[in-house]
Design a protein around this nucleic acid. Structure first.
Lengths: 137, 137
DNA sequence: TTGCGTGCAAAGGTTTTGCATGGCA
DNA sequence: TGCCATGCAAAACCTTTGCACGCAA
């Protein structure tokens, strides 16, 4: 949490719910629905803004899968997630998210920076494709 | 074009415009604006429906980059089939979309397939980050 | 006290749908 | 003629913004 920011009840509940869903992705609607059903009132706007902040902080990843369908969010365990060299592959068939550590890919990131002048933000970047198992089908 | 479908003036103009922009991304709004300025009236709905059909037919690729920003469409030359080796970088500061062909990146794609069993779908994958110019600021 | 966080309502932007009309085969 | 395509208007959707109030520090 950045300096000058407050720790609020809503933020706590948001993080608690997200971390309980580690490995799954949830939508803004999922969050509101679940928290409100638990008696913990939280506004939709607050969820949007809270998630945005968590994405910036690197605790949550955001996936925009399709137009006109809600964005998906997923909690990233700070212990499992190694930040700067962790790539994410998401299977578009089974929805599985793969956390990938690979020096060759770290080099790819460097390559793009040096040869194409583009600094990739791994917090936001996701490789979409088809995983091993789903390719067999 | 599938059986039982008609060849219309709007479809022709849509294809003509898209193919004239080969290698670039255009939005639905771009299409409408350009065609209407050329005196070729075409409705927004028709563009949406026409593009959807062309995507199904494989002549056009659709990119969903961000929530609340329009989808991008790109004509795919069936002979060149550039779609299979084209990477996309999107600057999260200025919003610029960079269309990148690079053999080293094509190798990265191969690497991930061979070593990690994951087949990347470049139609869907976008690298988010900060471009050259924005990094200077 | 300061100023960030919250949440309602409203706006903003993209995409889809309903339906009557028009045009291809 | 039969049936798909068109296009206007309106709806549906997700998301963002404005603003007054509340709450953490």
């Amino acid at each position: 949490m950045a300096k000058g920011e407050y720790k609020t009840k809503q933020r706590e509940e948001l993080i608690e719910f997200l971390s309980s869903k580690e490995g799954e992705h949830v939508t803004v609607n999922d969050v509101c629905k679940h928290l409100n059903e638990s008696g913990k009132k939280i506004g939709t706007t607050t969820v949007y803004r809270g998630l945005e902040k968590l994405v910036d902080e690197g605790f949550v990843k955001k996936y925009v899968l399709d137009a006109n369908s809600p964005a998906c969010f997923e909690y990233i365990n700070p212990l499992v997630h190694c930040g700067s060299t962790c790539f994410h592959l998401k299977c578009t068939k089974c929805g599985k998210l793969i956390h990938l550590h690979c020096d060759d890919l770290a080099e790819t990131k460097e390559h793009i920076l040096e040869h194409h002048g583009f600094s990739i933000d791994l917090q936001r970047t996701v490789f979409y494709g088809v995983c091993d198992k789903c390719r067999e089908d």
